[in-house]
């Protein structure tokens, strides 16, 4: 269908559809770029997590791979001192507001944050930044899953599937700034909301915020 273009990512020549965002072009070809908020189905990238920075030749500063379309002859580097520095800071900022208790987390071993830490040799521990996590009660009300807001990284995947795939409209982003969070109308627990407990949102959560209960029992 669409035209193909040849681009270079980390010295590898790739043929990808023209205009494909670099993040997907790289991932499809086995090149990992850290990312949380990016997911393919969403028509417009949120570009909120700020983890997928890459260097593109000719650009003065690193750019986010989820927003940058592939153009013929483009030369991309997934790593550089500048990229590494930005990714490290963004990662540290995210974990400064994420309840880090991996040993007791249902997603231990299958967590995007752990994957990023491993890929980029980053510590899952705060060294220079302050702990910002506020203790919030876990919403255990649904039968098969639970929601721990203190582990949420605000990637928005759950909100997207709730609205667009499951078409329920039970959860959404509320408030703003540091108080921004994923919650329900009136901030009631999930079973008191329109939630149908279909579990679609749990499947897309990259971290341990939305987890199936049987996983936790394992």
């Amino acid at each position: 269908m669409s035209r193909k273009v040849t681009i270079t990512i980390d010295d590898r020549q790739l043929t990808v559809p023209e205009g494909e965002k670099l993040l997907w072009a790289a991932l499809d070809n086995g090149l990992y770029i850290p990312h949380l908020c990016g997911f393919r189905e969403s028509e417009r990238p949120a570009a909120g997590c700020r983890l997928c920075f890459v260097e593109v030749e000719g650009h003065p500063n690193p750019v986010t791979a989820c927003t940058e379309p592939a153009v013929e002859g483009m030369v991309v580097m997934t790593r550089s001192p500048r990229v590494d520095r930005l990714v490290r800071t963004a990662f540290e900022l995210i974990i400064s507001n994420h309840r880090l208790d991996c040993a007791n987390c249902a997603k231990n071993g299958d967590c995007e944050l752990q994957r990023i830490a491993k890929a980029r040799k980053l510590k899952l521990k705060l060294t220079r930044l302050r702990q910002l996590v506020k203790e919030t009660p876990v919403d255990d009300s649904p039968q098969s899953f639970s929601y721990d807001a203190s582990r949420c990284v605000l990637c928005g995947r759950c909100v997207w599937v709730d609205h667009n795939k499951a078409k329920v409209g039970a959860i959404g982003f509320i408030r703003r700034g540091i108080s921004r969070k994923v919650s329900t109308f009136g901030e009631v627990c999930l079973t008191d909301s329109r939630c149908t407990q279909c579990g679609e949102c749990v499947k897309v959560c990259p971290v341990g915020a939305l987890t199936f209960k049987e996983a936790a029992d394992k």
Partner: peptide, 9 residues
């Protein structure tokens, strides 16, 4: 005809 959580948001 929008989800009530979006109005709240």
């Amino acid at each position: 005809k929008v989800p009530e959580v979006d109005v709240y948001g």
